[in-house]
Computed example of a mutant assay.
Amino acid sequence: MIDLRSDTVTRPSAEMRRAMADAPVGDDVFGDDPTVNKLEDVAAQMLGMDSAVFVPSGTQANLIALMTHCQRGDEYIVGQSAHTYKYEGGGAAVLGSIQPQPIDAEADGTLSLELVKSKIKPDDPHFARTRLLALENTTDGKCLPLDYLAQARRFVNEHQLALHLDGARVFNAAVGSGVDVREISRHFDSVSVCLSKGLGAPVGSVLCGGQAFIQQARRWRKMLGGGMRQAGIIAAAGLFALENNVKRLSDDHENAEFLATGLQGLQGVDVVACSTNMVFLDYQCDFSRWESHLEEAGILAKVGKRTRLVTHLDVSRDDIEHVINAHREFFGECP
């Protein structure tokens, strides 16, 4: 099956599996797993941060970041559709006693800093204490503009806030923007990076930040059940991903562009292309028939009013051509 539901469906390559099998291991809770330590050092260096901590998931990485930046009764400002607010089970509120203040994002994925300013609470016992601004990059496949990141940094400095980046696909953002990832990460106090999306590892994320920040983050990781033992076996996959699969993200972006171009002109279909590895289709028809048609053609996709197609390392150019032909066949019949 050609699986376009997400880039989380990637499977480890033979070379990655060998790296996992051969990885030297120790007890990471004791801090003596050499592969985990190397992964954290490499991630921190790549993002220009002092330190990093390896965690099981992106959800846990973001939750740890929020709980490290904020105390009980504090607040973070976040996009209405941001992953840390909408798709992570309300963990900040449930487990961290942190109040989210969601706001609508602009069309390019940014949060209006004027709107953010209007949501910062006064220093008054009636209100939660606003401590953090959380951004996401990429968002719906779009890269946040670099000048906006610089503006956000100046803004949080002016208002004594911390700045966290949900950088699940931050390497896609860097490749899509044509810059080193440090040109993005340098504006933030903390950055979470997912290793199991386009980078192709089977599991895991890293949270990067300052030395004191990561030291506290390790305490939250343990409390949240993220302390792992011989974790070098899975850390080796993340290390392989960082060392081998970053530059090749451009292949996924090119395939997404090729897909978007090939789908242009289909009757009644609005094709929205991004600068990374996602294509969105807006269409009104029998969604179950569309999805069944794709499955019969060997294609998996989450079909709906807005359908997202995601390219990744397990999708080739030949696969993309097959997907284009399958859509042309279907929409030629669809009223």
Rank of each mutant, 00 (worst) to 15 (best):
P102F: 06
P102H: 05
I103T: 10
E106W: 02
T110M: 10
T110P: 05
L111Y: 04
L111A: 00
L111G: 04
S112E: 10
S112T: 13
L113C: 07
E114L: 10
E114Y: 07
K117Q: 11
K117N: 12
K119P: 02
K119W: 12
K121P: 01
P125E: 12
H126D: 12
H126V: 14
F127E: 04
A128H: 12
R129G: 05
T130N: 12
R131G: 09
R131W: 01
L133I: 06
L133C: 07
E136I: 08
N137F: 06
N137Y: 07
D140I: 05
D140G: 06
G141Q: 05
C143V: 15
L144A: 06
L144N: 01
L146K: 00
Y148N: 03
Y148P: 01
L149E: 09
A150M: 01
Q151S: 14
A152R: 01
R154T: 13
R154L: 14
F155S: 02
V156I: 13
N157M: 09
E158R: 06
H159K: 13
L161T: 09
L161I: 14
H164D: 07
D166S: 10
G167S: 12
A168I: 14
V170S: 06
F171I: 07
G176E: 04
G176F: 00
S177N: 03
V179N: 01
D180N: 15
R182T: 11
R182D: 05
